[in-house]
Design a protein around this nucleic acid. Structure first.
Lengths: 345, 345
DNA sequence: CGATTTTCTGTGAACGTTCCCAGAGACAGC
DNA sequence: GCTGTCTCTGGGAACGTTCACAGAAAATCG
């Protein structure tokens, strides 16, 4: 006990934080009363309230969340797990929209959104520990790949959670998604409707549900005309994939006159490759994309694409988590997409 | 005590989590021994270790972080505060790079990076509470504006922290930054060196140190030729700002033959506006940008710009926080930039 | 004015860990 | 066989809250 009072030791560089007891002493009241003031409960006299508020300011008290979370058995925080390869975190504007959409919903419900990014196996383990440790009350998982270990860890401990997207091979969790297959089918049909005869696809991210489903949709729309030689595949939804992919398609089929790119970034890359190869868009080759991200308006000519409501996906997933927190079922939601027909086809 | 054993009440829908005491009981050992096993300490017999590991698996124990944080008085988490307007979160690839850079450093030091985004006043308050509550041991603040309330809150409680960038009007905290002014001066001089006579600037984000300093650098380089009429200002570093800004500049000075855009996104917008106005880049008008983001290579012609090492800014800021956590001073770091001269000027 | 309700305050217990100390046992050295 | 070191285990105390309960004081009621 002696060592404690002479608080000049170098072992603890930061000053000891004031606790609720310090406030109580300073105000000449009890712990309980201070707690009631801090939490804005009723049954505390004006006199006491002011004394406590005064004391709080004087000693510089701020509540210790760890202690509170421990006794309340909740954190009022929701984790959002971003599991993306480097390049996509820079290029994919959807992620930002999803984030903001989720944040808006959670913020209104007075939950703190904490984003955790996974960029290595070490991260993966640490994030799993973080989620399991009770530091969040729920989780939103974006861009999970088939059989993601994080998703398994979440399911195992029964943490309320929801996916953005609908990867298969993952545990049974609710999700907010769009129907990628149907949307891809629709825009490919529309492209065919402009009279194109040789239509190819630059497919991406086939390890994700979105990538896989967009390819199936394309195949469905092409029906008997489907030619596997006119599909090229790349691992990521990037501008570079579009650029390289288009060059490859031109090599394979110089007479190609239509392309469905798996995302807007891919489409932008493809358009650059086409223009450098001297093809006019849309006169010689029609190009369509997917996402209706900021890329679409930036392209010249402006891109015809599928509008996907990324912010709504984020907020819907957040709502699914909140529903579970309130003991409700949390049934999957499929949001509507819409074709944005502009100039590129 | 009676009520506790019959654990069928509906008030608590999720099953009670196993605690360290449950594990101890199941293993026929004490709390202390279980704790030692969980934390991988020495002085525990092989026999005991196996018994505990067995028991942990059997009861499905996972450590409660709130309790641990409370007694250890640390969380081993670092907050990263993103305070950006909507549009930038989508368009600015630097943010992703900074995030990954910081994450890499912290991950190696076994700290969990948690990103907190601020998108409203409500968020601002909640995030401040989160930081103050002891849920993080330190913070990295990116894109703070002059006199940011969050920065003030952090300084007030003495949380180890660092800025990315160097806003003034903010509390004395270490930072990792580049010399925006000098870099802007350098690239403007280089642009002038190509023989341009009428050079303007599309300035952005003057409420931020980066925006302000880039403008000063431009002015310094222009010296006596500086014409305030050839500077247009926009609030955000966006493609749209570049597009609109360039149109405005062309209106004000049809004979303009050089432009310094405050960022690559701005430059990309400017180039589109120029091309739509029938000007050739770089023959009629030279364009330079700032960032060397993925925009730069995407532009046609490719953009001459200032390369700024966004990932290193993130990692340097993270290192500054770690240094403070280890009781070291944490002195500001200014990182080198480099001109990437390509085709647009 | 006594009985009842309402308002207000204080305190013990609990949340689930880690830390520290005491003590038991094994083993070595002389 | 005594002393000393090393290995291992158990349990009390503390971390800083919230909660439930008890009881005092004040207000209301019949």
């Amino acid at each position: 006990m002696l060592g404690y009072s002479t608080n000049m030791s170098l072992t603890r560089t930061r000053a000891r934080r004031a606790t609720i007891n310090d406030v109580a002493d300073a105000a000449g009241l009890s712990r309980g009363t201070v707690s009631r003031v801090v939490n804005g409960e009723k049954y505390v006299s004006d006199e006491a309230r002011h004394a406590v508020e005064d004391a709080i300011a004087r000693v510089g008290y701020v509540r210790n969340s760890a202690a509170r979370n421990l006794v309340k058995q909740e954190s009022r925080a929701i984790g959002l797990i971003i599991h993306e390869p480097h390049s996509l975190l820079f290029e994919d504007p959807n992620i930002g929209s999803i984030l903001l959409g989720a944040n808006e919903v959670l913020s209104k419900a007075d939950y703190q959104l904490v984003s955790l990014i996974i960029d290595s196996d070490r991260d993966s383990r640490r994030v799993a520990d973080y989620l399991r440790g009770g530091l969040v009350d729920g989780a939103v998982i974006i861009s999970a790949r088939a059989s993601d270990p994080i998703a398994a860890a979440i399911a195992e401990i029964g943490l309320p959670a929801a996916f953005v997207g609908h990867p298969d091979g993952t545990p049974e969790l609710p999700y907010a998604a769009i129907d990628n297959e149907e949307a891809a089918r629709a825009i490919t049909s529309r492209l065919l409707g402009t009279g194109r005869k040789r239509v190819g696809m630059i497919a991406s991210a086939l390890d994700r549900d979105s990538g896989k489903d967009r390819l199936s949709g394309f195949r469905a729309a092409m029906g008997g005309q489907f030619d596997p030689g006119l599909v090229v595949e790349y691992p990521l939804y990037t501008y570079a994939a579009g650029f390289d992919g288009m060059q490859e398609l031109l090599r394979r089929a110089p007479d190609i006159d239509g392309v469905f790119a798996a995302s807007d970034a891919v489409a932008a890359g493809a358009m650059t490759a086409l223009q450098e190869a001297g093809r006019r868009v849309p006169e010689d080759v029609g190009v369509v994309g997917f996402d209706d991200s900021s890329w679409a308006l930036r392209c010249r000519p402006q891109l015809s694409t599928v509008r996907q409501p990324a912010d709504l996906l984020g907020s819907a997933a957040a709502e699914l988590v909140l529903a579970q927190l309130n003991g409700l079922p949390g049934t999957p939601r499929v949001l509507e997409t819409e074709i944005q027909w502009r100039e590129s086809a």
